[in-house]
Write a protein that binds this DNA or RNA. Sequence first.
DNA 1: GAAAATAGATTAAGCGCTTAACTAAAAATA
DNA 2: TATTTTTAGTTAAGCGCTTAATCTATTTTC
Lengths: 343, 343
Amino acid sequence: MKVTIYDVAKQAGVSIATVSKVINNTGRMRESTRKRVLETMEELNYRPNVMASALMGKRTETIGLLVQDISNPLFSEVARTIEDRAHERGMNVIICSTDANREKEKKYVELLMRKQVDGLIMGSSFHDKKLLQELISDGFPLAMLTHDDSSLPVSTVSVDDFKGGYEAASHHLFNGHRRIAIIAEHAYSSNFRISGYQAAHKAYGVECREEYFYRTHGTIENGKKYFEKLFHRKDIAPPTAIFACNDQLAIGVIQGAKAQGLGIPEDLSVIGFDNTILATTTVPGLTTVAQPIVTMGKKIVDVLVDEIQAGRSLRERVLYNPELIVRGTTYAAKESAANMKPL
Amino acid sequence: MKVTIYDVAKQAGVSIATVSKVINNTGRMRESTRKRVLETMEELNYRPNVMASALMGKRTETIGLLVQDISNPLFSEVARTIEDRAHERGMNVIICSTDANREKEKKYVELLMRKQVDGLIMGSSFHDKKLLQELISDGFPLAMLTHDDSSLPVSTVSVDDFKGGYEAASHHLFNGHRRIAIIAEHAYSSNFRISGYQAAHKAYGVECREEYFYRTHGTIENGKKYFEKLFHRKDIAPPTAIFACNDQLAIGVIQGAKAQGLGIPEDLSVIGFDNTILATTTVPGLTTVAQPIVTMGKKIVDVLVDEIQAGRSLRERVLYNPELIVRGTTYAAKESAANMKPL
DNA sequence: GAAAATAGATTAAGCGCTTAACTAAAAATA
DNA sequence: TATTTTTAGTTAAGCGCTTAATCTATTTTC
C-alpha cells in the first residue's frame, strides 16, 4: 500500500508533526532525529502526497500553460523551455491547446482552476478577454507571453513586434523591393508587426498598398492560398517580396511559388517570423525574424513563479528585441540592382 | 474567498453530503433538491476541489506523458493528439521531456507519482528498465507508445517498425539502388527498422554492408554529420540512397548533400521516417514512412484510460501499419534505369 | 538555586471532500 | 392499522498532510 506520513512516523518513532517538519525543513529538532526520519523515509520509499499538502494551503507546484496548438513548432519550442525552467523552479506544467477557441479556453481554465494550479501562462493571444479580466481581478497569478496588451494589468513577456515588422519590411525595402505584400495572422501581436511594416514603408517613402495586405490563420495551407490570391489578382502587379507573419505562412508561400515555377529568391523574396525549426529545414533556409524563444520561455516562468511566491501581481512587462536572421529566401529585387536607404 | 462545498450546502439549505451527491451524480434525492443545489453551485460559481476528492481516493484525472523532447515535431504532434483525446476522456496531461536521460526519467516519474497522476504514458523509449518494471509490478497504470518491448508486461501502441524499415529499403531497392546507407536512432524502435531494412536486402538478394550503417541521435545536425562521414570515406563507394530513421536525420542528410552540390533525388535518394510536418516543408517534399500519429495518440490514451478504469493492466498490444509516403526525394538510381523486383 | 528562556518534541484541529452508517418520513404491504 | 420497505436526506469518520498551541526537559541568567 501507499506509504504515508504515519508509516514513517511510526517506524522512526516520532510524531507525524516531526516528519512533516523534516519534509518541509521547518521547525527545530535534534540532528539525529532529522537524520533518522530521513533514513526512514528513504527506507520506506516515502513520497509526500502533494494533494494532501495542497489541501492545507500549500502550493500544488503545478502551472498551466495555454497555447494555441502544441503541435505548432513555435509553441512546442516555447513549451519546452517553459517546461525546463519550471522544473528547475520545482514546478510541473500542464499544457492545453486551445485552438484559439473561446470555449476551449474557458473549459481549460476551469479545469486548471479545479486542479488548483498555482498560476497560468497564456502562451499566446487569449481571446476571452472577460474571463481574463476576471482572473486578473481575482488576483490569480497570470503571465502572458507574446501578447502585450497594455490595457490589461498583467505581467507580459513578448518580443518587440513593431520592431520585428519594421526590420522585416526594411530588409525588403533596402533590397530594392517596392511591392511588398504582408500576410498577417489573426493574433494580437500581428497588429504591431503590421504597424512596423507600415512604418518602414513610410521611412523609405514607399506607399503601403491595401491590396498587398491579407490576414488569416498562420498555417502552411493559408500561406499557399494567399500566395495564389496575391498572384492571380488582375488589378495589381504581383509583389516581388512577401513578409509572412510566421514561418508556416512563409513556407506555404514558398511552396506555392515553387509550384508556379517561381524561383526563390530570384523571383520572390520571402521573410517569415519566429525562426522555428521550420525556418532551418527549407533549402534555401528561410530568412525570418527570430524571437528569443529560450530567453522568453525562461523569463515567463520566472515572472510567473515570482508572482506566485510574492502572492501578488508584479506587473512586469518585458520586451525583447527581435533579430532578423538572413538566410536564403531574400535577395535584391530584379528591377533595382542598387540597395536602397530610408529617406 | 474560495467557495467550498460548505458554502453551497449552507446556501442551498442541505448537508454537504447532499451536495457531494449531486456533484458525483450518486445516491438518490428529490429532483427539486438536486436542482436547487445545482443552481446554488452555479450561483456561487462553485468548483469542486480536485485535491480534496483525490485525497478521498478518487482519481486526479491527470495523466503524465513522458517524451524525449516536446519540441521535437514528432512528439509535439503526438502530444497534441494525446492531449485532445485525454480531454475528451476528462483528463489533463502533464508533459515532461526526459531527453532520454535516466536521471530525468526518474525525477519526473517521482514527481508525477507525488502528484498522484492516474497513469503514465511513456511516449518513446524509456531507458530505466528497472524503474519501469517497478512501476509495472506495483500495478501502476502504464502504456507505452512506440516501444514494443515484448519482454515487458505492459500495454503498448506502436507502428510496425520492421515493416516500415522493410518498405523504405524496398522502395530504394526497387528503384535500383544497391548501395543504401542507413542512419538509425538510439531508440528501441530502430532495431526493428534496421531488421526490416536487412530483410528487404535479403529479399532482393542484395548484400547489406556494415560500412553503410550508422547509429546516432536523431537530430538534423547528426544527419548532416553522418552524411559527411559517409561521403568522405575512402574505403567504400558512397551510397546512392539513404534511409534515415527519422525525418530530422533525413533533412540533415539533404542539407549536407545540397551543400556538397549533390542533387536530390538525382544524385542521392533519401527516405525519412515519421512523416512529421518537417517532411512537408522541404522542397521537394521528403519521401518518408508515415506513422499514423493521430490514430496512435488516440489509441494510447484509450488504452491507458481503460486500464485506469479497469483498475488492472489490460496488456493490450496494438501494432499499426506504417505507410510509405512517396514525395520528391527518391528516384531511380543512375546506374540502373530499370526498376527491380525482389528475387 | 529559582525564574526565565530555549530546544525538541507532541497534540489536535482542520483543509475540502467522499461515503458508510444511520435516521426520519413516506409509501407499500400485510 | 401496524409493520415493513423505500426514499430522502444527515452524521460523522477519515483521506494525508500542515501548523498553531502546548508541553516537557534542559539551559541560561542573575
